[in-house]
Computed example of a mutant assay.
Amino acid sequence: MTEHAPNRRIILATLVAGLTILLALGAYIFWPTPAPVRPFNVVPTADGATKSADEAVAAAGMSPADRRATEALVKAYILENPEIITDAVAILQRREVSKRLTAAGNEIAKPFPGAEAGNPKGDITIVEFTDYNCGFCRASVPDVQRLLKSDGNIRLVYRELPILSQSSRTAALWALAAARQGKHKAFHDALFAGGRAEESSIVAAARTARLDIDAARTFAASPQASQEIERNLAMMQQIGFNGTPTFIIGDQILEGALGFDALKSAVEKARRQG
């Protein structure tokens, strides 16, 4: 599970698009007349799907009887093999994830100075977006720590993403101040161990991490710290998620308190893919 920002995107019409593609495929297989090329960068609608199917049928030179036969074959195939729908959705999702991460570029894995842990030269980078008032983020801390201890070739980049409350933002600003002093992980772990992020727990975590309190307070109020928070929020919108914790591992966007085994599997998958 994840803790979410108020807005949430909903992706619709995948099934309609899948049926249209299958119908067009059936027409191509049985009546292989070249069909006109259509753009695929538009959101499908029921009317659009019907129009596309009509055009494919016309291009293939199908009679009404041929069309009915093809539709019956496609329908029967889908009913007998319903898993092709979920398979198609999974492929589309992977392609969409890849596009979003490519669009975001290398900035994702470029940390605010000091906001990283693990092996700085590791072959796998994990980017973790977190909110200090997120219970699922707190639950993930021991799993992430265990992963770093068990695999010495992981680089962890922390991205502060305060989406739950004003005190979340205050905590995130202080975490950046801790990073500036080279003590981000110590502050990060101490604050999550201290419960809900509020004024008293933030100062207590800062003292546990042995921060220069005055310097931290000054930097937390600086434009530089606020700009980094806004950058992370914009990155969330660009990549297309709205909950914490969110982990980016290779070309995978993983949301929620996943547990050690799932995180380890994601790392292994990213390593295999190179």
Rank of each mutant, 00 (worst) to 15 (best):
A186M: 00
S167V: 02
F241I: 01
Q238V: 05
I126L: 14
E71S: 15
G194K: 04
N41I: 15
R231P: 03
R138G: 03
F40L: 11
D143A: 15
K185H: 08
Y158I: 04
A76S: 13
D189F: 07
L176K: 06
S140Q: 10
G118E: 12
N133R: 04
A215T: 05
G105E: 05
I11T: 12
A117I: 01
A58W: 02
G152P: 09
I108M: 05
K264M: 02
S52C: 06
Q166T: 14
F30V: 14
E128Q: 13
L92P: 00
L73E: 01
A139K: 09
I126Q: 10
Q252E: 12
A190P: 06
P44K: 09
G274L: 15
K51N: 05
L173P: 08
E96W: 04
G256Y: 01
D212P: 00
L23Y: 11
E116I: 02
E230L: 15
P120D: 09
A76G: 12
Q224I: 15
G259H: 00
E199R: 02
T218K: 15
A197S: 04
N232I: 08
Q227C: 13
A262I: 08
D189W: 07
A262S: 09
H188E: 05
Q166L: 11
K264G: 00
Y77W: 10
T70V: 15
K51A: 11
T246D: 05
L92Q: 08
R95L: 15
R159P: 04
A65V: 13
G240E: 12
T246K: 09
E255R: 05
G122Y: 03
A186P: 00
V43L: 15
I85P: 00
N133M: 10
R231Q: 13
T218D: 09
P39K: 06
S265Q: 15
P34I: 15
R67A: 13
